[in-house]
């Protein structure tokens, strides 16, 4: 049975959640209002940050700064050295004022203006998406604030580098027929350096953004096998050797390395290679790791999945359907790879 058809047949369960939607809609309005009100307040307060700039406004043939310094020198009868120190102190107070007030203003805007929106989106995922998930995908649990640990990605050796910045959210755990699955959205970056006009600059470069999909594999195996896109830099791993497989199309798209030349062929039967190629058509540049009788897939994506919008009504069907569609895009991977076929001793 096709997974997508199985789930498509069920209509979106909106009526049962009327009270939740009403409360969220109220929260959404408050969040939008808070954002705009805070933005206006911040814009009104912004000139205060530039108050020290007034010291440089020319009054007559001298700036206010020079005038204040001269007046203070004559008033308190200061020496030339003291005059310089006074000018420096005036400049430093001005700088502290400018940067300090700018920092406070940004903090104020983030806390009062943006935080209610973030809270709304978090609540929306917890209350609506979790409920929709439970309703549509009976064997799947959705945890919006959990993710897959960074170690899973780094230890997979599917990339030749490790992450310096990693974020994972929207964790799904459950079962599709006989296969246990776990998947979550993840984003990983690494530190790189580049040469600029002023010397070397360090920046974070995104190298993976998409879904980490872990599924229980339907056969027993003991080796570690990696499948990575052909032509890309490959990490050398001890005891893993390159494998030349019989399918020329598979060979043209992927590089396979394994710790066991026989076991890798047991995992990658000719039909499994064709199935991986089918998944590859939907998720180009996918990477796969077979380890500990599990299959880990890195499915690249160009956009954030499972994300509601602050500017859409809480009960917006398009938004809910988009969430369901996002999950439905991933679940058929189990059927595409035929992982539910349990004719081997592992059941």
């Amino acid at each position: 049975m096709n997974t997508s058809n199985r789930h498509n047949s069920k209509p979106v369960a909106l009526p049962d959640m009327k009270a939740t939607f009403q409360a969220l809609e109220k929260q959404r309005h408050q969040a939008i209002k808070a954002f705009w009100v805070t933005l206006v307040k911040s814009l009104l307060l912004l000139p205060l940050c530039f108050l020290p700039g007034m010291l440089f406004i020319p009054i007559g043939d001298a700036t206010l700064w020079q005038t204040v310094t001269e007046h203070s020198t004559s008033l308190f009868d200061l020496s030339t050295e003291m005059e310089t120190n006074f000018a420096m102190a005036l400049f430093m107070v001005g700088s502290v004022w400018f940067f300090g007030s700018l920092y406070l203003l940004i903090r104020f805007f983030n806390r009062r203006g943006r935080e209610p929106g973030r809270v709304y989106l978090r609540d929306y995922k917890t209350k609506v998406f979790s409920q929709i998930c439970a309703d549509h995908f009976a064997n799947l649990t959705y945890k919006p604030n959990s993710g897959i640990p960074w170690r899973v990605l780094d230890d997979s050796n599917l990339f030749p580098w490790i992450s310096d910045w990693y974020q994972s959210e929207d964790l799904f755990e459950g079962r599709v027929e006989h296969t246990d699955i776990t998947f979550a959205e993840a984003h990983a970056k690494r530190e790189r350096t580049r040469v600029t006009g002023e010397g070397m600059e360090t920046y974070l470069d995104s190298y993976f953004r998409g879904i980490i999909f872990i599924a229980d594999f339907h056969k027993h195996f003991h080796s570690t096998t990696r499948i990575t896109p052909a032509g890309e830099k490959l990490k050398r791993v001890r005891k893993q050797e390159s494998v030349i497989l019989e399918d020329p199309e598979f060979q043209s798209f992927f590089v396979t390395t394994s710790t066991d030349q026989s076991d890798v062929r047991y995992i990658l039967s000719t039909s499994m290679m064709r199935r991986i190629l089918c998944v590859h058509k939907r998720f180009p540049k996918l990477r796969i790791l077979f380890q500990d009788e599990k299959m880990l897939m890195l499915l690249p994506a160009h956009r954030d999945r499972f994300e509601p919008s602050l500017y859409k009504r809480a009960d917006c069907e398009t938004q809910i359907n988009s969430f369901i569609a996002d999950v439905e895009t991933l679940l058929p991977v189990v059927d595409e790879l035929n992982l539910n076929l349990r004719i081997w001793s592992k059941s």
Binding site: S262, S269, W344
Partner: peptide, 11 residues
């Protein structure tokens, strides 16, 4: 038996 067959094929 199926498993053994596939392992024979793989080897």
């Amino acid at each position: 038996l199926t498993e053994a067959e596939e392992q024979i094929s793989a080897s």
